[in-house]
Structures are given as structure tokens and as C-alpha cells.
Design a protein around this nucleic acid. Structure first.
Lengths: 203, 203
DNA sequence: ATAGGAATATACCGATCGGTATAGTCTATT
DNA sequence: AATAGACTATACCGATCGGTATATTCCTAT
């Protein structure tokens, strides 16, 4: 029935961190939202920074688990799953609580280079990209890593775009672009390499 | 020689806001960085919020101006410019001061729906997308708005990706994807519509 | 019944926040 | 030389920050 106190605190913190931002959320407000006090909060978490990392790590697990389940519930074949990814993101972006990606937001709030927050955020996207790359490989993509990175750029772009301006069709456009990129990565179309910007400084 | 005091304050604020984050930067630190005091700061700016908006609006102007100049310096034809966009972003992301997109970061720090910060950030990307859409139209793209949105998703994705993990080749991959999308948007390849995720629930 | 640990309530700490009040310094114009 | 206005220096305001000390209540296990 009632949750572990530690989990209650973590849940309250997670919701506030995500909805209001991390720096904008004080520990007093977290304790109040969890129906407890700062004393108990500091019994389970050494510091606010510790709580922030716990939030991000749990979010990493939860989101990826939820995400894979959603995709699996929508599609069976690898190629269909690769496209369903964009539908799942699109549905996520449509919920009113959507406030962008917790990891991108956290990275924006804690810019210092060696910060563990940045590290956890980078790991999340590594995991995410690995998931996409595996699907890409099962599709028969000729360079799964490249395709995975490109698709993840579309996804991240759609998320931050939707965060700044809601309902601008980012997810649909991302999916349309993904269709083209996926198809192009699977079946080769040899005569599209005639596009060069400045032939002299090609890298 | 020496700048307007108001501009000196705005410059100091801009650098600190961008490098450390907005909430993490106090007005006292801004005044100190501008070699002045809080009193003068509050003579020229009504509040910190006012200063934040001034920072974002100036950034909007400056960045877009700088960006267009860079692109124009790299390419002549619309199509070449469309690709040069990715080179410019790639070079920008390589400088050590790079800390992501000021507008995405600001949006992450001020999540409340009606916040003017969010509005200014959305306007920046509207302007940016318009610039891309104009180039796309001059290229003969069949749907310049769609292509522009797709390309901007790639760009925004590359920026946040590079912010979380430096030197992961985001800009190059974004450019490779852009080449395919641009080519596909200009010359039609009719037989790539055989890609459907779940035929029953197509939206 | 009672002891012990878990949780609460509350007050406090020093530091910093955004913002202001007041007095003094400097320089340019007359 | 005097005056005006821009700028500085500094102290202060109430509020809030992350974090702690202390004492009390509550529940459970023996």
C-alpha cells in the first residue's frame, strides 16, 4: 500500500525536479511534497546533489524500461519498431506534463564539465542510442551506428523543439525524416552522391 | 574605446549566463564581472528577469547575424548554403566555450508555460527555421517548410547531443543525414513509400 | 510494560539570494 | 569655483537556500 519513505521522497523530488527544474526546487519543498520533513530526507540522502543523481539514475532506468515496453507493444519487426520509436516519443510529447527531456534539462542546469549530472545524462543517451543501433542492425542497416546517431538526433531535436513550442508537429516531421533515412540506410541508392557544398574543403 | 556601461553589464551577464547558467549566476557576480556595482546594474535594468530577457534578445540578434555571415562566407548557392549550415554549427560546437544553445538552456531553466523566456526562445527558432526554409525554397524543395523543420531538428539534436558528450561526431552525422533529406526533398524518389510500421493504425 | 528505533516538529545555522537606501567620489559643463 | 549627474562603496533588507541540532512522538518487538 504505502511506499517506502525513501521512495516517497525520491518520487516527490523527481516530480518537482522535472516539472520546475532542479535549481528551482528546494529541499524543504521536496520534504513537504513527500509529507515528511527535511530530517528524514537527509537520513536517506546525503545531500541535495545525491538526491539529484538518484533522480536521474532512476529516471534512466524507468524511462528506458517504459520506452522499450511501449515500442514492443506497438510493433513486432525491427523495422517497425524503429518507426514506432517516433510514435512513442510523439505520444509522450503530447501529454500535458511534458517538459522536455530530464537529462537535457539537467545538463543545461549543471554545465560544469566534470559534473556527475552531465555524466549520467550522457550515459542515458549512450544506452538509448545502443537500443536504436541494435534495432538498426537487425533491420539490415549498412551502418547501424550512423543511422542510430542520426535518428537519435532527430528525436532529441524533436523533444527540445516541442519543449520550446508545443504542438508544432516535431514528432511527425522527425518520423518522416526517419523513414527516409532508414530506407536509405537499408537499400542503397547509389546516385545521390552528387551533392557537394564546397568541393575544395571537403572533409 | 571603452563601452557603454549598460553594454558592459549586458556583456558580462551574457557570458556568465551562458557559461554557468542563469539561475546559478547572481547579480552581484555580474556587477563584479562588469567592474561595476549592483547599483549601476539596477539603474539600467529593472530586475534580473529584465536582464535575462535583454541577454536572450541580444543573443538572438547577434547569433543569427553571425550565423548568416558565416554561411554566406562559406557558400554561394542555396543548396551549398543549406549544407554549410551544418559546417558552421560543427565549428561552433568545437570551440571550448561551447555550452549548448542558450535558448534551449534557458527554456530548461524556466519551464513555466507562459514565461517570456520560453517565448523569446521559441521566437529564435522560428526565425532560424524561416532562414532555413527560405534556403530550402530557393533550392527547389518540394516542401520547404517540412525540410526546414527536419533539418532544424537535426541541428538542435546535434547541439544538445554535443552538449552532453563532446566530440561524438554529431555535426558530421547531422550533415550526412541532411544530405540525404535535402536530396530526397528536391528530386523525388517514388518507390520508397513501402515502409509502414503498423498498417492498421497509420495516422 | 517497556525499551529502541523510526519518524516528526521546530528552531536554528551561516551563506547567499534579489533588491534598495544612503552617502560619497569623480568628472564635465557652465 | 560651483553645480549637476553619473558612478561607486557599502551597508542593509527580508527571504530563502542547503544542512543540522534537539527534543518529542509514535510504533513495534521483546
Amino acid at each position: 500500500m504505502s511506499l517506502n519513505l525513501q521512495e516517497k521522497i525520491l518520487r516527490a523530488a523527481s516530480e518537482l525536479f522535472y516539472s520546475q527544474g532542479i535549481r528551482a526546487t528546494g529541499v524543504e519543498a521536496i520534504a513537504k511534497a513527500a509529507n515528511t520533513t527535511k530530517m528524514s530526507l537527509y537520513k536517506y540522502f546525503m545531500s541535495k546533489d545525491d538526491l539529484v543523481l538518484a533522480f536521474l539514475r532512476k529516471r534512466d532506468e524507468d524511462f528506458r524500461g517504459w520506452f522499450v515496453d511501449q515500442v514492443d507493444g506497438k510493433a513486432d519487426t525491427p523495422k517497425a519498431k524503429l518507426l514506432a520509436v517516433f510514435d512513442v516519443i510523439g505520444e509522450w510529447m503530447a501529454i500535458p506534463e511534458f517538459r522536455g527531456c530530464a537529462f537535457i534539462n539537467a545538463a543545461a542546469e549543471f554545465p560544469l564539465a566534470g559534473n556527475p549530472v552531465l555524466q549520467v545524462s550522457a550515459e542515458f543517451y549512450d544506452h538509448f542510442r545502443r537500443y536504436i543501433a541494435d534495432l538498426a542492425e537487425q533491420c539490415g542497416s549498412k551502418s547501424p551506428e550512423s543511422l542510430a546517431l542520426q535518428l537519435s538526433l532527430l528525436l532529441e531535436g524533436a523533444i527540445v523543439s516541442e519543449q520550446m513550442k508545443r504542438h508544432s508537429g516535431s514528432a511527425e516531421q522527425a518520423k518522416q525524416a526517419a523513414i527516409i533515412l532508414i530506407e536509405h540506410s537499408i537499400i542503397d541508392i547509389p546516385d545521390t552522391s552528387l551533392l557537394t557544398s564546397n568541393p575544395g574543403e571537403q572533409q
